[in-house]
Amino acid sequence: MSQSTFSSSVSAPRPGETTWLWLIKIVTGPLLLIVLLLHFIANHYLGSMSSGLMTYDDVIRYFQNPIIPAIEILFLITVVTHSLIGLRGILLDMNPSRPILKVVTWLLVILGVASIVYGIWLALTIASKGS
């Protein structure tokens, strides 16, 4: 049964790396829940007054332990990936044309890479401010 017989309103399936993208989305979800919990507890329960990282100095001190920037960067990569794959999924639900989809996908990739690069730079900068 050839698909072209029914091509008027059912186009050929559009394959893509969709299995893998979806798997990444569904794995980053729970992963980021765990890292988020750590991030939240640390931010709101550590620090000079035990009520969280309340001042600039608190944050700098917190970042001196190398495991902290490592966790924060991991969190950043996980959450940016999950969020942008999700955004692209919402766009796909609206049946974009192929050219629009390509443009938006590229914009999301650029946004994602830029955010991650910026975030890594920021984490390392903050860590280096303590001496």
Partner: peptide, 8 residues
């Protein structure tokens, strides 16, 4: 296994 298949 397509964008308009199970993953939608």
């Amino acid at each position: 296994d397509a964008e308009d298949g199970v993953w939608r």
